[in-house]
Design a protein around this nucleic acid. Structure first.
Lengths: 340, 340
DNA sequence: TTGTAGGCGTTATCAA
DNA sequence: TTGATAACGCCTACAA
């Protein structure tokens, strides 16, 4: 079974390919009679235009590319979900690629997508990405780009983010209001904006509440295995500070879960001995013991919003409108559970 | 900036498009001198063939389509991971689509992929799919297809699965050996083969160990929200049987987690009062309290294996070889933790 | 060894 | 109102 082509329809109807094409696209200069004839036959044969031919001709592919650091991630799965929902509604296909937090791979993926002629690109940067020539290349090719979550401020394009700093600030402030005084921070890598902003929010909250910032209370979790990182950081913290630290603000729920595991292994009670605050609101956080307080990060909405903005930009580009970049900041909220 | 074309290379070099094309593809009938000239220039200009043109000409798209029920799912995320890894290595792009356990949507997705001219399709059926005309259509179009995990025995194509029945049998047998006598089963929908096979494994294990099968101990969890389903089933079980049931074999970890939550809410101790066994080995299961015993389901390997088989089949098809379908059964293993 | 020409399926211009 | 024709970019049989 082979797909039906315009030519076949034209031949069986004794018309020219041109007329058939125009009839299908409802051009005004085709007789109603022929329009009906063509459309009826097309429908009965399940005619669908060959996308490669259309793409070659129109330079549009009805396809968008998505590059994310990792799929096995509650947050990103939700983002993908949101993207797929919007794309599907608008008839766009989604090519998914994964950088595995690897800059070189991310670069290769970008090249592939450009070559593949995608209409637009949606992207969340890897933690290791600190050079943006590949991103600039996307823009040079005039391909609409929307960055989400892991963005870079130095790239000029539309962005969808949360206010990491404020979210972190609110979380830490909550801990302080609850009476915690010596609050550690398990932070992420130095490069990603998220990681920086959450750290800054943590610091600011301390300062605004007259708690001196102590750099030795900040632990790096950047070995690409959040759970272990959290476990190890908790171990070191415990070794260095005994039980003098009374709360930890963690960069992600998984880091917090790792810490939790260490504390349980060592009979340290959460939240009695030490309080824990996570970030992201993975499903897991609502079912572990104790349930984890965290910052809810709207992954699904982020995916939807990013896709909408991108498709808008694509449409405007095709209409010849000038595009203006926008940055959308989505709301987060604190989810208070048992761990603090 | 526009992509470079053969024509441009030909013009700057004063050669014909044909020669340039042949030079790039290393045809024997092009002079070494010109080959070098062409290839050097192509490289320096970052020439890449226009995929739509190639596709139109060769009828190959170097793209495969993937349809899964849901992305927000530890198991499927891992599968996607495996697929992406293999596809990327072979230079294939992956179009991802999600059926949301919806038959109609799944059908539409299949049509889109066929129209899009993908070289092959990888697919895990929705729980609601009990009509396979859309799958047959894929085969009718001669598009290689590999089904994984959620398959149908009545479709004639390659498959990658686990032995659900044996895995379930082993899990339940383990529970019996531990001394449990009244073992309930929280099962899934009636349609999916997985759900059926896990149920059959459960039943067989009972019978082989001289425990009479009792249909009233089997609870349906098919409202598309595993966690709630598990919670509710536990509630009903508790109401109907008090504490006489001493173990539950659950169709998924999430169902088990839901049940666990109910028991915790009602001060019923796991595993002391009732043992729990899950299925899938989500990350979550290793961090909840108590940690959950479960069947490890190799998602990553399944993705890799499925993609390999599909790409093999695609290659064989292009080489004109006859393809033979194969069914690969991946190993599972019991992961024993604290819940039983 | 090189180049011409036809065609993949579609769209768009322009002449009939 | 219709249709021939060129073009999108590439590949390849065949002619030069």
């Amino acid at each position: 079974m082979k797909p039906v082509t315009l030519k076949q329809i034209a031949e069986t109807l004794g018309l020219s390919v041109a007329t058939v094409s125009k009839a299908l696209r409802n051009y005004p200069d085709v007789s109603e009679k022929n329009k009906k004839l063509v459309n009826d036959l097309a429908k009965s044969l399940n005619y669908v235009p060959n996308p490669s031919a259309v793409n070659l001709r129109t330079q549009k592919s009805k396809t968008i590319g998505v590059i994310i650091p990792a799929t096995v991630h509650h947050f990103f799965s939700n983002v993908i979900n949101g993207i797929l929902e919007v794309a599907e509604k608008e008839g766009y296909l989604v090519i998914l690629m994964q950088s595995n937090e690897n800059y070189e791979l991310e670069k290769r993926h970008v090249d592939l997508l450009i070559n593949k002629n995608v209409d637009g690109i949606l992207m969340s940067l890897s933690n290791k990405t600190n050079n943006f020539s590949h991103i600039k290349k996307i823009l040079d090719f005039g391909i609409p780009l929307t960055l989400f979550d892991k963005i870079s401020k130095s790239v000029n394009c539309s962005k969808v983010i949360i206010d990491d700093k404020t979210a972190a600030y609110n979380a830490v402030t909550y801990l302080i209001k609850k009476g915690h005084k010596k609050i550690a921070h398990f932070r992420g890598d130095l490069i990603p904006q998220n990681s920086i902003d959450r750290f800054l929010g943590y610091k600011q909250a301390l300062i605004d509440n007259n708690i001196p910032y102590d750099a030795s209370l900040v632990f790096m979790c950047n070995n690409n295995n959040d759970f272990k990182d959290g476990y190890n950081a908790a171990k070191i913290l415990h070794k260095n500070f005994g039980d003098s630290v009374d709360a930890i603000f963690c960069i992600t729920d998984v880091v917090a879960t790792g810490a939790l595991k260490y504390f349980r292994d060592n009979s340290i009670k959460v939240p009695e001995d030490i309080a824990l605050f996570g970030f992201s609101d993975w499903f897991m956080s609502s079912v572990i013991t104790p349930t984890l307080s965290t910052v809810h990060q709207p992954g699904f909405e982020m995916g939807k919003e990013s896709a909408k903005i991108l498709l808008d930009e694509i449409n405007n580009k095709y209409k010849g409108k000038t595009v203006s970049y926008k940055t959308v900041v989505l709301d987060t909220k604190l989810v208070i559970r048992e761990s603090c």
